Amino acid sequence: MYTHILISTDGSELAQNGVDHGLSLAKALGSKVTIITATEAFPIPTGVAAWGVTPGDIARYAADCEKATETLLASVKATAEGMGIEARTVHVPDARAAAAILETAQRDGCNLIVMASHGRRGVKRLLLGSQTAEVLANSSIPVLVVR
């Protein structure tokens, strides 16, 4: 049924619930997985604060993101492979998570997306946004949301 599962993570404890569920499902179904994380671009301040940002700041931010995601993805991949699951990792820099998830799922031929959600409603959802809601609204393939 689901032969290629895309599992998203941002390294948080909540996201780990989605990773664990996705890996368990992949193991049960004999599916391969792609594990994805995305990092947003350097937040460029506006006004007077913008004068203090240097190209070096942006380069350090990118390097820090790359190092953190390498560690995160290597850990999840090792867990997957320890379970006997074929796993591939993807880091999409300078991107919003929802867009990266949707594009990767389509490009790689995934037939299920597994991700976690806080399940926020109302004003909190409006203020904090929801990458999960965006994926749900725009995905052409099934999405399993873990809380």
Score class of each variant (00 low, 15 high):
Leu144Gln: 14
Ala15Cys: 09
Ser130Gln: 04
Pro93Leu: 08
Leu25Tyr: 03
Lys124His: 12
Arg88Asn: 14
Pro55Tyr: 04
Gly22Pro: 00
Val19Ser: 08
Ser117Asn: 06
Thr132Asn: 09
Ile101Pro: 00
Thr69Met: 07
Ser75Glu: 15
Val135Glu: 10
Ala26Ile: 07
Cys65Glu: 07
Ala38Ile: 04
Gly56Trp: 04
Ile36Tyr: 08
Asp20Pro: 02
Arg96Pro: 05
Gly52Ala: 13
Thr39Phe: 05
Gly84Met: 12
Val135Asn: 11
Leu136Ile: 15
Pro93Trp: 02
Ala26Pro: 02
Phe42Thr: 01
Gly56Ile: 08
Ala68Tyr: 01
Val53Ser: 10
Thr71His: 10
Ile113Trp: 00
Ala99Gly: 12
Val19Leu: 04
Val145Tyr: 04
Gly52Tyr: 12
Thr3Leu: 07
Gly82Ala: 11
Ala95Cys: 09
Ile36Thr: 03
Ser139Asn: 13
Ser31Glu: 03
Gly18Ala: 08
Ser140Ala: 15
Glu86Gly: 10
Glu66Ala: 11
Ala63Pro: 01
His4Ile: 06
His91Thr: 07
Ile85Val: 07
Met83Tyr: 10
Gly11His: 07
Arg88Ala: 14
Thr54Ser: 13
Gly18Leu: 09
Val143Trp: 07
Thr39Trp: 06
Thr9Gly: 02
Gln131Ile: 03
Asn138His: 15
Leu23Tyr: 01
Lys124Glu: 10
Ala116Asp: 02
Ser12Asp: 08
Ala38Asp: 06
Ser31Pro: 01
Ala41Leu: 09
Gly11Lys: 05
Leu144Cys: 14
Leu6Gln: 09
Trp51Val: 10
Glu81Lys: 09
Pro55Phe: 01
Ala78Val: 11
Ser12Tyr: 06
Thr71Phe: 01
Gly30Asp: 13
Pro55Lys: 08
Ala87Ile: 13
Ala137Gln: 14
Ile101Trp: 01
Asp108Lys: 12
Ala137Lys: 07
Lys124Gly: 04
Leu112Tyr: 02
Val135Leu: 13
Glu103Ile: 02
Arg121Lys: 15
His21Asn: 11
Gly56Arg: 13
His21Cys: 11
His21Ser: 10
